[in-house]
C-alpha cells in the first residue's frame, strides 16, 4: 500500500468535519475524494498535506508515519484551488522554487534545475511562457503551472484541491484529459478533491464518496454507478427519478405492472424506487404510469422528456430517437415504464 488513512477524526469547535475515515491508495493510483460542500473532503486533503492535524487516527505513507512529519517534510505536491502561484516570480522561477529552496547539499545544480524546469514546461506545453508572470497567464495556464511546480519536487503523492474549480466548462474538459495523461506518464499517486461527480467518474481509478464527514462508499467509477450502496450515492452520481411502489423479492410492483429491482438492504413492503432517466421506456399503449408530456428537448443523440404524473410528480427521461418517441409533443399523454429500478434501505 502506498497511502493508508485509518480512523481519521477531525472536529472543529462546532461540528465534526471527519469521523472515522479509513481508506487506502495503491501506488500510482488516481483517487478522487467526491462529495458535496461540507462533506469534509477538503479538510481530508489538508490533513494529508500536513496543513492540519487530525484529532485521532493515523496517516501513513509506505509505512512511514505521516503525522510525525510537517508539511515541509512530507514532500507532497499540492495544487491549491487558488493555485497560489508566487505572483512576483516568473513561471520558470515558480516551477524551480521547490528545488532552489533545498538545503545546500541536496540542492541540484543550476543547470540541473534549468533542465528540470524546461522538461516540465514541455510537459505542460508552455515552453515559450517560462519568462511570463502569473498575472499574464489564463486560468488554465496558471493551473498547469501550479501542477508543474508541484511535480518539480518529485512528490511522493500529488494532492489537488478542486483542480478545475475556477475554470470554465470548455477548458475543464480539455484539462481533465490532459491531467489524466500527465498522471499516466509520471505515475505518481494522486488524490484529488471534487464536488463534480462527472469529473470524478471520468478521471479517477477509484472514487471515495464522502457525506457529512463519513465515507459513504469507495469503488471504481463503474462499480459506484452500477452498484451504489445508498440512496445518497445513487442520487449524487447523476440525475434520477423516484416513484412509490411495493417491493416484493427482486421486483417492485407499481400496481398493474412490476419492474426488476436492484435491492440494497431494503425489506419487502412499501418502498421508494429510484431509476435513471435512460432506464425508461415511453409508449402510447404499453404498461406504465400515465403521464403528460411537459416538454421535449432534442439533446443531441438523445431525446430528453419532462413528464408529469397524475399526482403532480415530475419525471425526467432520456431516450434514443425512435419511432415511438420522435413524434411526441408537449401535452401528449403517454405511459412511462421504468426498466430497472433501485431500492435502498
Amino acid at each position: 500500500m502506498s497511502l493508508t488513512v485509518s480512523n481519521i477524526t477531525k472536529t472543529f469547535t462546532k461540528f465534526a468535519a471527519l469521523s472515522n475515515v479509513t481508506f487506502e491508495a495503491e501506488p500510482g493510483e488516481f483517487l478522487a475524494l467526491l462529495g458535496p460542500s461540507g462533506s469534509g473532503k477538503t479538510t481530508l486533503l489538508r490533513l494529508l498535506a500536513g496543513l492540519d492535524q487530525p484529532d485521532s487516527g493515523a496517516i501513513a505513507f509506505d509505512g512511514e508515519d505521516f503525522l510525525q512529519l510537517n508539511a515541509r517534510e512530507r514532500r507532497i505536491g499540492m495544487v491549491f484551488q487558488s493555485y497560489a502561484l508566487f505572483r512576483h516570480m516568473t513561471v520558470a522561477d515558480n516551477i524551480a522554487f521547490g528545488l532552489t529552496v533545498r538545503p545546500g547539499k541536496e540542492r541540484p545544480s543550476k543547470s540541473q534545475i534549468k533542465a528540470k524546469v524546461d522538461s516540465l514546461l514541455k510537459l505542460i506545453q508552455l515552453e515559450d511562457l517560462g519568462k511570463r508572470f502569473p498575472a499574464q497567464l489564463s486560468g488554465g495556464q496558471r493551473q498547469r503551472v501550479a501542477l508543474a511546480r508541484a511535480l518539480a519536487i518529485e512528490p511522493r503523492i500529488l494532492l489537488l484541491d478542486e483542480p478545475f474549480g475556477a475554470l470554465d466548462a470548455l477548458v475543464r474538459k480539455d484539462l481533465r484529459r490532459w491531467l489524466r495523461r500527465i498522471h499516466d506518464e509520471t505515475g505518481v499517486t494522486t488524490v484529488f478533491v471534487t464536488h463534480d461527480q462527472e469529473e470524478a467518474l471520468d478521471l479517477a481509478d477509484r472514487v471515495v464518496v464522502l457525506k457529512e464527514g463519513r465515507i459513504e462508499q469507495i469503488g471504481k467509477p463503474l462499480e459506484l454507478y452500477r452498484d451504489p450502496s445508498s440512496a445518497f450515492v445513487f442520487e449524487f452520481l447523476g440525475a434520477n427519478n423516484q416513484a412509490a411502489g411495493t417491493l416484493r423479492g427482486s421486483s417492485v410492483d407499481f400496481g398493474g405492472f412490476s419492474v426488476p429491482a436492484i435491492v440494497k438492504g431494503a425489506a419487502d413492503g412499501t418502498a421508494v424506487a429510484r431509476f435513471r432517466p435512460f432506464d425508461t421506456q415511453v409508449s402510447r399503449s404499453g404498461p406504465g404510469f400515465p403521464v403528460k408530456v411537459l416538454s421535449v428537448l432534442p439533446a443531441g443523440a438523445n431525446l430528453r422528456l419532462e413528464l408529469q404524473g397524475a399526482d403532480g410528480q415530475v419525471y425526467e427521461t432520456q431516450h434514443a430517437h425512435d419511432q415511438e418517441t420522435s413524434d411526441l409533443k408537449a401535452g401528449d399523454t403517454v405511459n412511462l415504464l421504468p426498466t430497472k429500478v433501485y431500492v435502498f434501505a
Binding site: 498535506a49 515541509r72 497560489a84 502561484l85 508566487f86 505572483r87 522554487f97 511546480r149
Partner: peptide, 25 residues
C-alpha cells in the same frame, strides 16, 4: 497565506518563505 503555505509544501524553510515570498510581496 496561500503563497506562503504553498512554499511550505514545496519544502521552503522559515527564512526562505520570508525573504523569497513574503518580503517581495
Amino acid at each position: 497565506t496561500d503563497e506562503e503555505v504553498a512554499a511550505r509544501t514545496l519544502g521552503a524553510r522559515g527564512w526562505d518563505i520570508f525573504f523569497r515570498i513574503t518580503l517581495p510581496n
